[in-house]
Simulated assay, not measured.
Amino acid sequence: MTTSSHDSPSGTFTRIAFHLAPALMFAYGLVRLIDGRDGHHGPGTAWTVGHLLFLGALVLYGPVVLGLRRRVPAGGTARRLTANIVTGVALIGLAAFIRVAIIDIVVGLQAADPAEKSRLGGQYADVPAVLPQVFYEIGPMFFMLGLIALLVQLAVVGPRSLAGSLSPVLVVLGFVTIFVNLDLLSAGATLIWLALAHLARTPASVAAPRPTPAQPTTA
């Protein structure tokens, strides 16, 4: 008996990531509310704990993105190319987002007060200085756009369902909610979880087996 990717250890981890990534975002949103009770966000324990939760969420979104790619049904060259491009865009944006979280943690640990945190944040704005600073500013957007694009592709070429059709809409609403007010981060994370939860139960797609040539028959 063979084990499908859905039942393999990597498949199990991916299914967990579909739930845990938004859950850690949700927790970060709660810690951020606690951190802001004095009118400032960081530095301090709450800042560090919150950003560690956020970093964990971002790391887990890597398996989520790859899991979504594996759920795109096998198809022609255009479908595969589109899925690969948007997956690459999402992963590049995710790397930029992870950099932001790491720098926020480092700055929070070094700063003694909000003013120093702001000053140190400016010093780290172009670290590592190997890419134009504009990339560091807009890079995280690539993750959001790539994730939405993957969900749109799944809604179009994947199994037809109401949950699948609503997934990209819910993710867009989740990101918009977060952009409108960071204090609503937990609400946005909940919308993203609702978009991903049903996909955790969807097995990865596999290419259809090639037909075997008919064997000649003997009289």
Rank of each mutant, 00 (worst) to 15 (best):
residue 178 I to Y: 10
residue 19 H to G: 08
residue 118 S to D: 13
residue 72 V to N: 13
residue 54 F to Y: 14
residue 41 H to Q: 05
residue 33 L to E: 06
residue 72 V to L: 13
residue 13 F to N: 03
residue 15 R to S: 04
residue 28 Y to S: 09
residue 79 R to L: 14
residue 208 A to W: 07
residue 14 T to Q: 00
residue 99 R to G: 08
residue 94 L to A: 13
residue 95 A to H: 11
residue 80 R to I: 04
residue 60 L to Q: 08
residue 125 A to R: 06
residue 85 I to Q: 04
residue 34 I to H: 00
residue 99 R to Q: 13
residue 205 S to K: 01
residue 53 L to R: 01
residue 168 P to S: 10
residue 115 A to H: 11
residue 113 D to G: 13
residue 166 L to W: 10
residue 82 T to H: 11
residue 163 A to W: 09
residue 33 L to P: 11
residue 71 R to V: 03
residue 169 V to I: 12
residue 108 G to E: 04
residue 75 G to H: 06
residue 48 T to N: 01
residue 168 P to H: 15
residue 169 V to W: 12
residue 152 V to Q: 05
residue 123 Q to I: 11
residue 18 F to E: 00
residue 103 I to Y: 11
residue 59 V to E: 08
residue 190 T to M: 09
residue 113 D to M: 07
residue 77 T to K: 12
residue 46 A to M: 13
residue 162 L to C: 14
residue 114 P to Q: 02
residue 135 F to T: 06
residue 177 T to N: 04
residue 62 G to W: 12
residue 8 S to E: 06
residue 43 P to Q: 15
residue 110 Q to C: 01
residue 108 G to C: 01
residue 38 D to G: 02
residue 171 V to C: 04
residue 28 Y to Q: 09
residue 216 P to V: 15
residue 97 F to I: 03
residue 106 V to I: 10
residue 142 F to C: 14
residue 102 I to G: 10
residue 170 L to T: 14
residue 211 P to V: 11
residue 142 F to V: 05
residue 128 P to G: 07
residue 93 G to K: 14
residue 10 S to L: 15
residue 66 L to G: 15
residue 149 A to W: 09
residue 11 G to F: 02
residue 61 Y to E: 09
residue 147 L to F: 02
residue 100 V to A: 13
residue 102 I to W: 15
residue 58 L to F: 08
residue 131 L to A: 09
residue 5 S to A: 06
residue 210 R to H: 15
residue 188 G to E: 10
residue 57 A to K: 06
residue 79 R to C: 09
residue 180 V to F: 02
residue 36 G to Q: 03
residue 137 E to F: 14
residue 110 Q to Y: 03
residue 143 F to L: 03
residue 64 V to A: 03
residue 90 A to P: 12
residue 51 H to I: 01
residue 207 A to C: 10
residue 10 S to I: 08
residue 101 A to D: 07
residue 218 T to N: 10
residue 126 D to K: 03
residue 130 V to A: 11
residue 128 P to I: 11
residue 167 S to Q: 02
residue 65 V to I: 15
residue 143 F to V: 02
residue 75 G to P: 12
residue 117 K to P: 03
residue 84 N to K: 14
residue 176 V to E: 07
residue 36 G to E: 02
residue 156 V to I: 07
residue 106 V to W: 05
residue 119 R to D: 14
residue 55 L to P: 05
residue 76 G to W: 06
residue 5 S to K: 02
residue 170 L to G: 08
residue 47 W to Q: 11
residue 34 I to N: 00
residue 84 N to A: 05
residue 57 A to G: 13
residue 80 R to K: 08
residue 128 P to A: 03
residue 6 H to V: 00
residue 18 F to V: 00
residue 216 P to Q: 14
residue 106 V to L: 05
residue 86 V to S: 11
residue 71 R to E: 07
